[in-house]
Each structure stands twice: as C-alpha cells, then as structure tokens.
Design a protein around this nucleic acid. Structure first.
Lengths: 182, 182
DNA sequence: TGAATCATGTAATAGGTTACATGATTCT
DNA sequence: AGAATCATGTAACCTATTACATGATTCA
C-alpha cells in the first residue's frame, strides 16, 4: 500500500524533467529555493527506495565510469501515471487556505507533464478558489481586530498580503499562458 | 532532554496569552488561519503531555462544573522562560530563506512576551535579512530563466512575489511600531 | 431518551531528523 | 599521500497522521 508524500511527488516531478541520481536531487533541494524540502540523505535515499519498491522509479544506469559510481533513477510508466493522477486532482478551497506550498509544487511540474491547456485550467481554478478565500480571510482579520496585540494583528496581515500577492501572481500567470495560445 | 517543536512553541505562545484547555487550543488551530498547525487530538494531547512532563505548563484547574470537565493549562515560570529564550534567538539569513513561517509565529507572540522595543528590533533585523536575501533570489531566478518551462519559472516568481510582499509588510509593521513610540 | 458535541485520550504506523559510517574518486 | 568531496547508505529517535475509543453533558 503506497501513500506518496509531498516530498515523494517533488522527487517524481524532478525525475520527470530529467533522470537523476540521489546526489543530484540532493543538490537541487539544497541549492535551490524549491519548496524547502530536506536535502539530507536520511530523507532522500529512503524515499527513493520506497518509490523504487513501488516501481514508480527504476535505476536506468549504475555507471561506474566518469561520473563515479552512481545510480541514475528515472520514472517508470507507472511513475508517470502516478504523477499525472496527482496533478489532475481538482483544487478545493481548503487547499488554498492550507496547502499553498503543495499547490505551487503542482504548478511547477504541471506544464511539462500535462501541457499548457491543463495548466491554464488549473490557474483558473486557483484564481477562483483564491478569490473565494480572500474575503473569508479579511473578514476574520476584521473580526479579530482589537482582540489581539498589534503584533498578532500584523501577523495576520502578513498572511493576507501574502495571499494578495498570490492573487496578483495568478493574474500574471494567466496572462502569460493566454498570451501564448494565440 | 527536551527539544520543543514549532508546534510546541505555538502552544506555549497561545497559553501565554490565556490559560486554555486542549480543546480550546484545538479550536484555535482548527478555526483560525494560524500557521496551519494540526488540530488533531493525536497531535495536541501528546504535545501537551510532553510540555507538562518538562514542567513548562501545568494544569491550573480541572473544573468539573459549568464548562464541563476540562483541564485548563497554564505556563509555568519555566515555560515562560523557554518561550522567551526562543523568541530571543537572533535571526539569520538562512531563517528568512526557509523558515518564514517560524518567523511569523515568533513575531505574533513577541509583543506580549518581550514588549514593543524588542519587537521593533526584531522587525529591523528581519528587514535587514530580507533585503539581503532578495537579490540572491532574483539572481537565482534570472540564472534559471530559459532553463525551465514557463511554469517552473512562474513558480519561482510566485515565491519572489511572496517575499516582496513580506518586505513591504515589514516596512508597514515598522512604521506602526515607530509611530507608537512617540 | 436519543443525538450531537464536548473533551480527552490511545495505538499503530510511517516518515523526517540527526548523526554516523563507508568507500571511491578527484585534486593538490 | 592526504584532503576534500562525491555518493550512497543505515540506525535511533521522535513526532505527526490516522483512526479509533470513551465517557460526560447539553439540547431537541
């Protein structure tokens, strides 16, 4: 029985782009602002092992020559299917409230896996859910105002501004994809 | 040997504001956009038990009357000390890159625990670290441009916009606290 | 009285963190 | 030859998740 974690999907998504070794993946997690996933070997190698036993990934080559001895891993067709399945799960409002990180990870991989039009549809639904969530958040903040210290109030506002930035970003992203279609 | 998790500090901070039962804390986590911590009993009661065995919190009353039978928990002096110690740890640039959530949690509790001037100092240092981090992020994005699909590029931009929003928020927050001083 | 919800807990599981370990290879 | 780093792994521990369980109390 397999339950793929967000970390697992991050690995699948990266391998979809390019077959890589554990070490290469580690470097990506360590050196890029990607999601803030762990780059520790104790996280990555067990995760790879799991994905391998589930046959979602497989060693394509265990080269000993030039680039040292390393196990290059690639997606199997089942791995690709699992990744697609995950990307195709429709958004719900609760996701927007709590799992923006998950959403952005999905988006990052979506174009290459599902194509432009699916990505655009995803952006539309994200836009819709964000717009539904914003007033809920502002109302909550208003309701709390006065019942917390300034810093609590401001902390909430920080979250609000973050979501506002996402709203603007979605519009921007949509325009990029819409512009591309014609 | 005690290692307090972020979740643990969230509890300590909330209890600093008001002695509460586990159930009350659950409701806060469930119904407010606070950090996105778990509201499940399997998370909260063990966490409370740990904090209790470390004597950072203690049951102030186990009322059976009106508000049912509930264990109201409050901070001990050691709990307050632990919370203060955590809040006083100075910021580093790596924190800004990866642990914005932690930072905002700290900020939310800081005013009531450490006072206005400490909070303002915290904001200044946050401002400094954010400003140091922004160019690193923009450079990284520039370096990647062209070497990823549009969606990957845009995902990075989303992060960038989030940080930009935080930069603006810090300025706002600073002005609120500076305005207060005079 | 029965349903809902209040309020606290526990058990199994799984995944991440931390730390350690080990060889091979490149570089000086 | 020795240091650094490449590359993979393992083991102990801890915590969150999930699901279940249990009584008490309010409310219809």
């Amino acid at each position: 029985m397999k339950r793929i974690t967000l970390f697992g999907y991050a690995i699948l998504g990266l391998l979809y782009g390019k077959a890589s070794s554990g070490y290469e993946l580690r470097k990506i997690f360590a050196e890029t602002p990607m999601g803030g996933f762990s780059d520790s070997p104790g996280a990555i190698y067990p995760a790879l092992r799991r994905l391998e036993t589930w046959e979602l990934i497989a060693a394509s080559a265990t080269s000993k020559s030039p680039p040292r001895r390393r196990r290059t891993l690639e997606l199997t067709s089942e791995g690709i299917a699992a990744l697609k399945l995950w990307l195709e799960i429709p958004l719900e409002e609760a996701d927007v409230a709590n799992h923006l990180r998950t959403i952005m990870l999905k988006f990052a991989f979506m174009e290459s896996v599902l194509g432009d039009s699916a990505t655009l549809i995803f952006l539309y639904s994200l836009q819709k859910e964000l717009q539904a969530y914003m007033p809920r958040l502002t109302n909550f903040i208003k309701a709390q105002s006065g019942r917390m210290p300034k810093s609590g109030q401001l902390a909430l506002e920080s979250g609000l501004r973050g979501y506002l930035a996402q709203v603007q970003w979605v519009s921007h992203a949509v325009s990029v994809y819409e512009g591309d279609k014609e």
